[in-house]
Amino acid sequence: MSLIRADHVSLAYGRQTVLSDVSLAIEPGEIVTLVGPNGSGKSSLVKVLTGQIRPDAGQVRRKPELRLGYVPQKLAIDQSLPMTVLRFLNLPRRRDPEAIRRAAAETGIEGLEQRQVADLSGGQMQRVLLARALLVSPELLILDEPTQGLDQPGEAAFYRHLERLRDSLGCAVFMVSHDLHVVMSASDRVICLNHHVCCEGTPKVVRDAPEYRALFGQGTQGALALYQHDHDHHHHDHEHDHQGHDHA
């Protein structure tokens, strides 16, 4: 049984169609990456899947009692508010200290528990948000642009970390990528969204799909780069570093 399934989902804000007849399913244990240009409906689709928004048409079905861990795109925390990482992890209710210890170990944030949330770097904050999502022992982890604001080495490290988590926890991962051109090489499937599903398949299938190339341009700018497992090669895609950060 699929963990989560969207059937013919449509959504509009006023007269603007955001999602049009979108269908997808996420199966246990798989890594699925969602890519698409700015304003293509990616975050709206996440909100529909997580139950934050009701679609205008179609339906979303979740496995009964699905344990869902969610890492939001950005969390606005009042910088003047004193809050330690440990206190943040215990919101909205107290968690088992052993569960917190395990989540901290799994995400590499041991030693940060007494630090102020406002003092964390972007990468540290992402790992804290990930640790908080792991506290529910998720069967499905949904991450909305989790590497936005990280540099490429930070992005690669985060992807490798997610891969290890999937292997150790056995959870499925559904991740929205902010960079059209770089997806996690461990993705079982890539779904390309531009208000509707343009194409989907393995990363290599999507990279070669005419719909993907039509949407994102030909040549190097339209090529889909994969973060590989080996650590001894150099990334030549620095021209992409400053793209995709102009979110409206």
Rank of each mutant, 00 (worst) to 15 (best):
E27N: 14
S44F: 03
V32C: 11
L11Y: 10
D179E: 14
G39K: 02
A76R: 11
V205P: 00
N90P: 02
A133G: 12
M83C: 10
A104E: 06
V46T: 09
V18H: 02
L150Y: 12
I4H: 07
Q218E: 15
H229S: 11
G219F: 10
S168V: 11
G36L: 03
T50L: 14
A131F: 09
I53F: 13
E30T: 15
C192E: 00
D96M: 04
M175G: 04
V32F: 10
H178I: 09
C171M: 15
L49R: 10
V190T: 07
V173A: 07
G217A: 13
R127K: 11
F158C: 09
A99F: 03
L162T: 13
L130D: 08
D237W: 15
D119H: 14
E163V: 09
H234G: 05
Q16M: 04
E65C: 02
R213E: 01
R95L: 08
L129D: 02
C171A: 13
D7T: 06
H195V: 01
E211R: 05
A131L: 11
V205T: 11
I53R: 09
R164Q: 12
R94I: 05
Q148P: 01
C192V: 09
R213W: 05
S177V: 12
A248S: 10
N38A: 10
V35A: 03
G217M: 12
A99I: 05
I109A: 00
S187I: 05
G29D: 11
L81H: 09
V136C: 12
L24Y: 08
P97S: 10
Q73S: 05
L134M: 07
D78N: 10
R93K: 10
A105I: 00
S121D: 03
H229C: 02
I142Q: 09
A248V: 14
A133L: 12
A133D: 12
L150V: 10
L81G: 01
V173Q: 07
G108T: 04
V183Q: 02
A103K: 03
D21N: 15
G36I: 05
S121L: 06
M83W: 00
T33A: 13
G36T: 07
Q116F: 01
A156F: 15
L134S: 02
P92I: 06
N38V: 12
